[in-house]
């Protein structure tokens, strides 16, 4: 009798030990973004329960407001995981919004969309070619491109907003709903889903991570790392141009300011999401939560009644704190 009780309990404690061991070995730093997200969410939910933080409208708003950043950040995840950076995404979005609006008013919706995508292809190709073929650091190339793209956008429009009157375009790109779901949420869901699967489940994704982790070893393994570097910058440019069209559709106009400063929010989202700034590791789902966390903080601070200067200070502090917790020992 005694014996049976003991033997019945033994595996239990063993199991408990195993669980403890697994938890101990669990690298919680990798999940700090999810922990952080939940903590901040609960914090605001309690603090702002009377300000309507938890209302479905407000929660949907958070998603909607972070959609463009999320999408840009998905492209940025590839660039950063490959140990490069793209500072030109914000102004690429602005230029794309402008070109889309101008082509659309001239020739209609399809040429308008093609014009927007063309902006991304051209900017991304130039960035990629300069980085991979000439070996110029992406920081410098895309810093230059940041100025060029926004300058061109301002120049060809003489700084004037370009209104978009095409209802179909506006509904499709950001203003409308797909069934009950806001269009912007559908767009970001598509980008996150494709981005996550490609990075973690395809040959290309593995090669991006290997190139970012150790370019020499990737070269010796027969990976064309120049092509990989070109491709990630191309992806980032095209993704940014789609984000630009979403600005254009939501705000029913193209304007050179759209997307200004988004590169910093996108980089923050990517790093918060656990992608290594030095390359070699990256998670698109992490990036989504990084972007949502930033959106959550913005929303909560506004509801809490902080003015915009205070918001900036708190937001900056939270980002530094989160990254500090997530970094490797």
């Amino acid at each position: 009798m005694n014996n049976t009780t003991i033997s019945a309990q033994a595996p239990k404690t063993g199991g408990l030990d195993a669980v403890k061991r697994t938890l101990g070995e669990l690298d919680w730093r990798r999940y700090v973004i999810y922990i952080g997200f939940v903590v901040v969410f609960i914090f605001f939910a309690v603090l702002l329960r009377d300000q309507g933080f938890l209302s479905p409208t407000n929660l949907l708003n958070i998603f909607r407001q972070t959609a463009t950043i999320t999408i840009i950040a998905v492209g940025m995840t590839y660039v950063i995981a490959c140990a490069e950076i793209d500072l030109s995404v914000g102004s690429t979005a602005g230029l794309s919004s402008v070109c889309t609006a101008m082509a659309l008013s001239q020739w209609g919706i399809v040429p308008g969309i093609l014009a927007g995508l063309a902006v991304g292809l051209v900017v991304g190709s130039i960035n990629g070619a300069l980085v991979s073929l000439l070996g110029i650091p992406s920081f410098l190339v895309t810093l230059g491109m940041l100025g060029i793209a926004v300058g061109v956008a301002q120049w060809i429009t003489a700084s004037a907003p370009q209104p978009i009157l095409n209802e179909t375009f506006n509904m499709l790109f950001g203003s409308g709903n797909f069934g009950p779901v806001p269009g912007l949420i559908v767009w970001s869901a598509i980008f996150v889903a494709i981005g996550a699967v490609v990075l973690s489940r395809t040959k290309f994704g593995r090669q991006v991570l290997a190139t970012g982790g150790n370019r020499n070893a990737a070269d010796f393994t027969g990976i064309n790392t120049k092509r990989i570097k070109f491709q990630v910058l191309l992806i980032s440019g095209v993704v940014a141009s789609v984000a630009g069209m979403l600005y254009a559709g939501r705000l029913e106009s193209g304007r050179f300011q759209w997307g200004a400063g988004d590169e910093l929010s996108a980089i923050a989202a990517v790093i918060l999401g656990g992608t290594s700034l030095f390359g070699g590791a990256g998670s698109v789902v992490g990036t989504l939560f990084g972007a949502l966390l930033i959106g959550l903080i913005n929303n909560g601070l506004i509801l809490a009644g902080l003015d915009s200067s205070q918001q900036q200070v708190v937001r900056g502090a939270i980002i530094i704190l989160a990254v500090a917790l997530a970094r490797k020992k």
């Binding site: 090669q207 290997a210 982790g213 070893a217 070269d219 393994t221």
Partner: peptide, 23 residues
Amino acid sequence: DQGLVLDHSVRDNLLLPLLDNIK
């Protein structure tokens, strides 16, 4: 420097030249 991506797992390193085989 040339053979391994040190921060990646043993498995990812092994599979890197073999990705076509597991597609």
